[in-house]
Write a protein that binds this DNA or RNA. Sequence first.
DNA 1: TTTAGGG
DNA 2: CCCTAAA
Length: 463
Amino acid sequence: MSFLIVLDFNTFHSHKCLGIEHFSFAVDFDQIKIDSESLHSSLTLEGERTKQEGHDEKLRADDVCSGINKHPGAVNCRTTDDIFNLAPASSNASFLGNVDFGSYSQGFSTTDIGVDLSFAGGHNVAFDQKEGKHMISSSTGSSGCSGSTTACLDDENMSDDRPMKRKRLSSSDSLKTNYEHNESKINPFNEGNRGDTLITEKRLRKPPRRYSEESVEQKSRSNSKKSALKASKDKSLHSESHKQQWQKKVKAAPIIHKDKSFNGGCIQVPFGLPIEEGHSAKKRTCWEPEEIKDNRILCIKDKYEVESFSAESEDENTEDECTTKGNSTQKGNSRRKHHISWTLSEVMKLVEGVSEYGVGRWTEIKRLQFASSSHRTSVDLKDKWRNLLKASDTQLQNRRKVVLGRKQASQQVPESVLCRVRELAAIYPYPRENKSKESCSAPSTSSFKSTTNNMFVSLPTVM
DNA sequence: TTTAGGG
DNA sequence: CCCTAAA
């Protein structure tokens, strides 16, 4: 098994890290999967054993952000471990990043190596492709906190992303070029195997209720001064033209008929009604039709998306694609507000931004890291950071309980990122949250800060 | 306008 | 995410 992978990696390496396909293409993981299945019987015992004894070790390793080599639990990790050992030092950095995520996503499914691996493997393919892609072109490893895995991972991406984004921004004064850019860029990657499952997920998801409400409102006041105002002052104004094109497309499609067929009366009624405090109740009345309509839109949109670039739910879309989606889905105003889930790359960009500019300088971060994504306002960044802090904190606590461990932890945000968040939280204490934690919850010294500090201190020690 | 914080 | 007070 490891032999296969090693060969693969060698090709990957011999291509000067340009052929990420060689590293993560389907066959590769099929091999792994097959191997793991065939090995399952023989490995089960060992896997179970290593999984258990490895788990503690893994947790500790994660604490110091030095994960990879200590994940004996998952088959993949073992192989990557082998690779890692064989890999020339020069390629360690970029490869590390890849392995990191892989092993983390593996980590959540190690409970059942034989079964879960297939899925997690698929996931890894997707992820590694993306990440690998990012990493390949950049090799700056300027990690602030010694070469921790996290640092590699983040910086690898970030340092690459930013220049590209700037370039994109400057080279595409009209958003149209921007989109062309992105589509052509995105296309090759999204045509992976994983697209299908993700698409289905997306289609099944219910639209948030608040969204339906707002779409109603937007329709009712389509030309209200607020929208005009917002559009005019919103920086994403330049995206308007493109957006409107999308809207035309969408509108051209038989959405309205569907509405009628659904007895759209429900939709109309709420208009007349005063839409004030009775939020929940009244919204719910008009929710169903809206939902259906929304699905319609989604379907139609999906058609386009699947044609141009295979849709992909909340994964790595590169914020630009998210923008595309957002604009197309929403009618009227600047950005689709309701819950565009944060992609990992976005989170990492945020983390990177915070590490570079400090907490609280959200506009800076927005300008520099999220320049090309019209959604994600500085407020969003702030909120997300708050959430990340919370997540990292709770994760820390969960770690101590150990028992809970893997599954629930952070399926979206890899531990490495949270780890980085904690580091940054230690460096740049969040304006008031940290204080409050210190003053309120921690009469003696401070629970949170001390732990994070310890973590932060222990990092270089271990590395 | 931007940040911080509550909801 | 949204809203809003404060700076």
